[in-house]
Structure formats: C-alpha cells, structure tokens
Write a protein that binds this DNA or RNA. Structure first.
Lengths: 220, 220
DNA sequence: AAAATAATTTAGGCTCGCCTAAATTTTTAT
DNA sequence: ATAAAAATTTAGGCGAGCCTAAATTATTTT
C-alpha cells in the first residue's frame, strides 16, 4: 500500500468518525491539501481495491477492510507521537509532522516492539486513544469540554479538540500542558469566558479556548 | 529531496568509498535493483542538480554537495539501526530493511534528539562508523580480517564485510555475535580454515566465513 | 418549478521514476 | 587491427498521483 493510500484512508476515517456520516469529496480535498478532481481519481482506485465505498456524487465511507487498515495507521501515528514526546523529549505540539512520516514505515514487528518498549500506552500525548494491535480502541476516557466544568471541582486536561499548531502554541505560551490539573474558579456568563487555577496560578480563558479543551474530572 | 535521490546518493557513496573509483552504471543498477537505463536517466537529473558528476560512458562520482547529503543519510541509517538493536531489542541482522525506511524521514531535529537519546554512539551494530552531525566519520577502529589473527591472541568481532541476511543468519546459527571475544586456536594451511574459541567453546570457520569477519585486537 | 450556485466528476495533460528495445560507445578477444 | 562482446545511452512508453478546464449532477434560491 502506498503512502498516499494510507493518507486517504486515515483522513476518511478521521472525517467519518466525527459522526457516522460519509466523507465528502471537498472535505477530503481540503484535509489532504489537494484538488477535488484528484480526490475523485484516487477514490475510484480505492473503491476498486475494496478499501472504500464511493458512490458517485454521494460521498465515501470505509469498508471493513479499509477501516482495519486506517486503524493500523492511526495506531502507528499515535505510538510514534508517544515515543517522540516521552523518549526523545519533544513538545507535544511539535510531533505531528514527524509522526506523519514515521507512520508510513512498514514493519509490523517494528510497531509491536515499539509498543512494548513504550509499555503499551493507551493514550497519545494529545489525549487521543491508541488502537491496539487488533484495532480496538481503549475505552474513551469519560471526559467533557472545559466549558462544562463545575465551580470548585478539579479536572485534568487530557486532550484538545483543535490540534493545529497555532492553538497548541497558544497553549504553550499560556503554560497549559496536557496533564495539567485545573480548578474552575469562576464563569463569566457575559462572554462565556472562565477563570481557572493551575497550581494556584490563575488563568483567564476565552470561550474559544475553553471550548477546545477536553478535561476529565478528578477527585481532589 | 526524494527517497529515490537518497538511495542513489547513498549507493554511489558506498560504491565510491571502496576505493577512490567512480561508480559504474551497471554496478548502481544492480545495487539499486533497477535497470541500467533507469540509472542513466536518474544520473542525468542528479547531475543537473549538482549532486553528482556524471561523465558519459565513464562513470559517476559525488560532488561535495552530494557527498555531504550522502553522509547525512548514512548517519540516519546507522543511528536508526543502533536504536532498533539497543532500544527495541532487534537482532543486528534484522534491522537493515527497517532502517532503510526510517532513514528517509526528514527532520534534522529528530535525528539530533535521537543521537542524544542514544548517547552519541560512534559505531552501528554492524561495527560501521556513524558520521556525526557535521558528516565527520569517527576514526576507524584499527581492525583486521579474521584471517590475519595471530595464534593465541585475543580479538573482538567488531564488524562484517558481507552483511547479507544469509551471512548474518549463518553467524546467528553458529552463535557468533558482534562483540564476541575470540581467540585463535589453530590455522589450517590446507584450506585456510581456522579454529577459534569463544568463552572456551570451540568453533571451526571456513576461509569464506573468516574472510568476512572483521576483528580488533584486545589485550587479554 | 426554474434558475442560479455549489459540488462533483470527466477529459486531457504533467512529472517522477521506472521499463523495453534499439543505437552507440568502450572493451575484449582473436 | 578488426570483429565480437559488454557496457552505456537514447528513444519511446507506462503507471501513480497530481493538475486545470470543462461538463455534469445536486442543492439552494427565488
């Protein structure tokens, strides 16, 4: 399987799992930084290979075979991200592009050994679950948007919705890192912004930022 | 730079360093598992890019720019091999094909961090020197072919000449591993075979095998 | 329901790295 | 020195994955 195929499957999977919906040609073109006509070309080929069900003018979804393969790519991507952060000391906002390349290395044994070396991690540095060898996702953490936090309760920042480097850099700048323990201090109904504290330092977050933070409730 | 370019430069370098000679089109075709005509095509392009000096019908050598790039690829390849063996527990005869893929990942920062993580190793698992960030090779170990060993002296197996998986598997079978401490017990002039001992177990090696072993003298 | 707009697909073409077959140059053998 | 053999290059083509422009189908507006 080519790298291009990998990228298509991964992207269809990512778009498809937002909800059960089929991926649209234009959306794929945008995510893959290519043109809609190129996407149509490629989908035709993936369709012939039985990786995708593409119905003209109606959209695309993965077949069982395609989904299985997509999950293996996701697995590889997330394991490499974990490696880069935990072992090589990269920041969690620096690893995406490198993992994007590493995920295309073909060797099942490599991934198995890497998985073992990393101690079978369940979540990558962005908080996303890592499928196991069989393609099973670990149970999602019971999480919620930071907008739903309750006053005085304690939470851990476990994931982000927007993982663009702009956003991740912003988080870095305001010293919010994955794993941070957060307590909600106040909510401002006027603009839906919130005030939180991390290790007793206070931080004010706009609604836009808070909406992109996924937290998990902690017992104090 | 494409992966194909990487492979050409690396191969020209490998053929070129055997002696000062220029690489021949046929030799490149064989090493790269492709046809001579394809090699000619590619050399023309590399020539235009200033990576290679190709003179029609006379052979090919690297320019300074090409050599610099080739050394970076060699560096990446050998660092990854070291990682695979030391950290992930691969056998030193299993890593070549995987490193072949990993070496094409583009990120200077990745290689720097990997180098640091591995503690700046000087030799890869096959005993070959790893160029540093600037492309400098560490001083070659003072080594010799196993055929030149002296009776009663002690040596360490530090490298192999033939690194085909057939040969490496043979070594595995007879339990000869890189780093093994070897003492020469006897030489048989008749067929140039030798008898050695490793940790007091004795082993008989044909000339063919011995010629492919590179050893370094040790003080007992 | 027709017209305007948006999404998608088709048609034709491009580059990269490869191929086969044929032509050319160099080397080897006689 | 010349003929035969081997190495190399040229010519013409192919598939993968991309592109632009034009045609087609869906959706939205009026």
């Amino acid at each position: 399987m080519s790298e291009s195929t990998d990228n298509y499957l991964k992207t269809i999977y990512a778009l498809g799992t937002v909800e059960g919906a089929a991926a649209t040609t234009t959306a794929l073109a945008e995510k893959l930084c290519t043109k809609a006509s190129s996407v149509t070309d490629m989908l035709k080929k993936l369709n012939e290979k039985g990786l995708v069900k593409h119905t003209k003018y109606y959209g695309t979804s993965l077949t069982a075979k395609g989904k299985k393969q997509a999950l293996q790519i996701v697995r590889k991507h997330r394991l490499w991200e974990f490696f880069l952060v935990e072992k090589l000391g990269f920041g969690w906002n620096e690893v995406h592009d490198i993992a994007e390349q590493l995920e295309h290395v073909e060797s099942e044994m490599l991934i198995d050994k890497l998985d073992a070396y990393l101690n079978y991690p369940k979540y990558d540095p962005h908080g996303d679950p890592i499928p196991n060898k069989l393609g099973n996702m670990p149970a999602m953490r019971k999480t919620t948007s930071a907008l739903n936090m309750k006053l005085g309760e304690c939470y851990e920042l476990v994931a982000v919705v927007d993982s663009s480097s702009q956003f991740l850099n912003h988080l870095k700048k305001i010293k919010l890192t994955l794993g941070s323990l957060i307590e909600l201090k106040s909510k401002f109904a006027f603009d839906n912004s919130i005030q939180i504290s991390i290790n007793s330092t206070k931080l004010h977050l706009s609604q836009q930022v808070a909406a992109n933070l996924i937290v998990q409730k902690k017992i104090k």
